[in-house]
Simulated assay, not measured.
Amino acid sequence: MTTLSQNLLDLSDFAWQRLRQRVEGLTDDEYFWEPFDGCWTVRRTAGGYAADGSRIPPAPAPFTTLAWRITHIVDILQAERTATWFGHTATGEAPPVPGSAADALAALDRAYEIWRGRLDALSQDDLDRAMGPIAGPYAESDGTSFALHILDELVHHGAEVGTVRDFYRGLNPDDPFPAALAGDLTPADRPGLLAEAAAAQRWDVVRQLADRGFGVDERTAGGMTAAHLAAGTGELDTLRFLIDRGADLSLKDTQYDVDVPGWAEFFQQREVTDYLTARRRAGSGA
């Protein structure tokens, strides 16, 4: 039977992986993008950077940039209270205010490492026990309720980050495929581009990119190969093409840890499953 602690860790890891995939490839322009006047963001100061804020936020709350939102997630995960409110000792450095997209991703990774370590260290007694005076108005709440609160913060702020990226992408569309097909973008420049084409369901582009030397076993930011995506969407002709080009069907994606036949089965792509089964039997001589 799965323990409460393991369920909390699994939920935390799932939310984290989803967020980390959504921020992959973040640029400085996007990080500091202010679509409206009056946004809260991260601003340069004499000593580095600082986030806009107020002890009592204005109502309605201002729109916050990706810089502000990611800094806020870092603060939440790495705050001392994610140790001390559980009765543990906080160790490690104070969270930074990142001044670039690259620094933000590094800070986010570090903050999650700290939070996950603290969550993993909790005993059942830590989760069951009332937090006491250190938690102020939440003194009577137990550790489980606080852990769930931090996870809620990770989930809903992570969703906000993803939504802002969607807005930015809609206003600043990135279509790298023409440049790749023209030879101006090479596999060394963007190794996973063929997998990105499969994720966009640009199946004709997948074939053209393979002809230009883009790897068929490279992955998207989410950890899927083009073969996973072709199998899961039922795109059998493309899957056959990828297999002819040497695609490794045994590779597992990094999110669900499932191989290519497993994707076809999970997404109920019967024609693909039957093809892969027949292919495997023919290969084994059965």
Rank of each mutant, 00 (worst) to 15 (best):
Val205Ile: 15
Leu239Trp: 10
Thr225Lys: 08
Ala221Asn: 14
Ala227Trp: 06
Thr220Ala: 07
Gln208Gly: 02
Val216Trp: 05
Ala210Gln: 09
Arg212Pro: 03
His228Phe: 04
Phe214Asp: 05
Ala230Tyr: 07
Glu235Gln: 15
Phe241Thr: 03
Thr225Gly: 12
Asp217Asn: 15
Leu236Gly: 09
Thr220Leu: 09
Asp211Val: 07
Asp217Gln: 08
Val206His: 01
Ala221Asp: 15
Thr225Ile: 08
Gly213Leu: 12
Leu236Thr: 08
Leu229Val: 12
Ala227Phe: 05
Ala231Pro: 04
Leu236Gln: 06
Ala210Phe: 03
Gly223Trp: 08
Gly234Trp: 11
Gly213Ile: 09
Arg219Met: 14
Val206Arg: 01
Gly222Gln: 12
Val205Ser: 01
Gly215Val: 04
Thr233Ile: 00
Gln208Leu: 15
Glu235Pro: 00
Leu229Lys: 03
Phe214Tyr: 11
Leu209Asp: 09
Thr238Lys: 01
Leu236Ser: 06
Val206Lys: 03
Gln208Cys: 01
Phe214Gly: 10
Arg219Trp: 02
Ala227Thr: 05
Thr220Arg: 09
Leu209Trp: 07
Gly215Asp: 15
Asp204Thr: 14
Phe214Cys: 11
Gly223Lys: 10
Leu236Tyr: 07
Thr238Gly: 05
Gly234Tyr: 09
Leu236Met: 12
Ala210Asn: 02
Phe241Gln: 03
Arg207Thr: 13
Phe241Leu: 13
Gly232Phe: 08
Leu239Val: 10
Arg219Cys: 02
Arg219Asn: 06
Phe241Glu: 06
Asp211Phe: 04
Ala231Val: 08
Leu239Met: 09
Arg219Thr: 15
Arg240Asn: 13
Asp217Lys: 02
Gly232Leu: 12
Gly215Tyr: 03
Gly222Lys: 11
Arg212His: 10
Leu236Ala: 08
Met224Tyr: 14
Glu235Phe: 01
Asp217Tyr: 01
Gly213Asn: 06
Arg219Ser: 05
Ala210Arg: 14
Ala231Gln: 03
Val216Cys: 02
Thr233His: 14
Leu229Thr: 10
Thr238Asp: 04
Arg207Tyr: 00
Gln208Trp: 00
Ala227Ile: 11
Thr238Cys: 14
Thr220Met: 11
Gly213Thr: 12
Gln208Met: 13
Ala231Thr: 09
Gly223Ser: 11
Arg219Pro: 03
Val206Ser: 01
Glu235Leu: 02
Arg219Gly: 07
Arg240Glu: 15
Arg240Ile: 13
Gly213Lys: 11
Ala231Glu: 02
Arg207Asn: 00
Asp217Arg: 03
Thr225Met: 07
Leu209Phe: 10
Thr233Pro: 00
Thr233Lys: 13
Met224Pro: 00
Val216Ile: 10
